[in-house]
Amino acid sequence: MQINISKSGIPIFAIVLLAIVFVFGLFFVGYDQGHIFSIVLGEQAFEDLYIHELTHDMRHAAGFPCH
């Protein structure tokens, strides 16, 4: 049986999965201003900024623009 793998041997789905982890984690720590929780909490999430406050210190320390 022929198995289709890329030249490096890394399957596409593994790359896609890690790429999703990368984008989501980066957004969570570096950029969220209530967006993620607003999916469940609605507009209130933009007031509470739970994730922003939680990741706030790392945001400054890792060089992401903040306040």
């Binding site: 790429a19 982890v21 984690g25 980066l26 969570f28 720590v29 570096g30 210190d57 790392m58």
Partner: peptide
């Protein structure tokens, strides 16, 4: 949050590093 955010950010950048 500093440490938890470190773990999440690290997992994220680590995923890029792994690829």
């Amino acid at each position: 949050g500093q440490i938890l955010a470190g773990t999440i950010l690290g997992t994220s950048i680590g995923a890029l590093f792994g690829i």
